[in-house]
C-alpha cells in the first residue's frame, strides 16, 4: 500500500528531513498489511493528520507567535488545527512554546500524561529545543526532550509563524506515515520511552500516589 505523505500545494522537495519520513514509510511497508486494514488505516491517518487540535499551552515568547498563527494573517485553521482545546484530555498535540523551567517540568509531564493517545509533542523555539539563551541558567530544562518524547522541533527564537506552520506540516506528514491499527509507530514506543526515562532519572514506577483527578 503506497502511503501518501504529500501536503496539498507543497512540493515534496521543499521539505527537509525527507529521509526520516521515508524511513518511516519503509518500516510501514515492510511487513505489509491486508488491503482492508491498510485502507482503513490510510483513511484514519488522513483524518488524524488533518485534524490535529493543539492544547492551548504557552509559557513565554513563542506563545505569542502561537497566538499569531491562530489569528487572521497566518490562520492555522486552514490546515484543520483550528480547535485549540484548553483541556489536555481533548487535545492531540502539545506545542511546547517557550522555556520549560524546573518548576514547570513536572507540571508539563503531567499535562502530557493527561492527554489522550495518540498524542504528539512539538518543541517550539530555542528554549524548548535546547534551553536556548538560558542554557546556563540554574532553573531551565535544557531541552524539553529530557522530559517528553518530541516529534517535531521548530527552531527559532521565537520561530516565525511561517516556520511554525512548516513544523506543523511536518507533524502532519509524520502522522500520515504512521500506522494506527496495530500500534503507533512513533519510532520509539511509549513503553520503551517510559522505561528509558525511568532509567535515566531513576524515578520510581510506583504510581499509587499519583492523582489523576485532573488539574485541580
Amino acid at each position: 500500500m503506497k502511503r501518501n505523505v504529500n501536503i496539498k500545494s507543497m512540493k515534496y522537495e521543499d521539505f527537509n528531513d525527507n529521509e526520516y519520513i521515508e524511513q518511516m514509510l519503509k518500516e510501514l511497508n515492510e511487513n505489509g498489511a491486508n488491503v482492508i486494514v491498510g485502507c482503513l488505516d490510510n483513511v484514519i491517518e488522513w483524518g488524524r493528520s488533518n485534524s490535529l487540535w493543539p492544547l492551548t499551552f504557552a509559557t513565554s515568547c513563542c506563545g505569542i507567535e502561537f497566538m499569531a498563527i491562530g489569528a487572521a494573517r497566518y490562520d492555522f485553521a486552514r490546515f484543520g488545527f483550528e480547535v485549540a482545546r484548553a483541556s489536555p484530555r481533548q487535545a492531540d498535540f502539545i506545542m511546547v512554546a517557550g522555556t520549560i523551567t524546573y518548576k514547570m517540568a513536572p507540571v508539563l509531564k503531567r499535562l502530557y500524561d493527561q492527554m489522550a493517545d495518540p498524542k504528539y509533542v512539538v518543541a517550539t523555539g530555542g528554549c524548548a529545543i535546547s534551553g536556548g539563551p538560558f542554557q546556563k541558567s540554574y532553573h531551565v530544562v535544557c531541552g524539553v526532550d529530557k522530559i517528553l518524547p518530541v516529534d517535531v522541533y521548530i527552531p527559532g527564537c521565537p520561530p516565525r509563524p511561517e516556520a511554525m506552520l512548516y513544523g506543523l506540516m511536518q507533524l502532519q506528514r509524520k502522522v500520515k506515515a504512521q500506522r494506527f491499527l496495530g500500534g503507533i509507530n512513533k519510532g520509539i514506543s511509549e513503553k520503551e520511552y517510559e522505561r528509558l526515562m525511568a532509567e535515566g532519572v531513576g524515578r520510581s514506577e510506583g504510581k499509587d500516589d499519583y492523582d489523576e483527578s485532573g488539574l485541580a
Partner: peptide, 24 residues
C-alpha cells in the same frame, strides 16, 4: 513556573551580552 534565572545569568556575562536577555 517560568523563572529563568536571568539575573544570575547576567552576573557571569559581559555587559553587551546581558542585553540579549532583556528582550525575553
Amino acid at each position: 513556573y517560568i523563572h529563568r534565572g536571568i539575573e544570575k545569568m547576567c552576573e557571569s556575562m559581559t555587559y553587551p551580552q546581558t542585553l540579549g536577555l532583556t528582550d525575553r
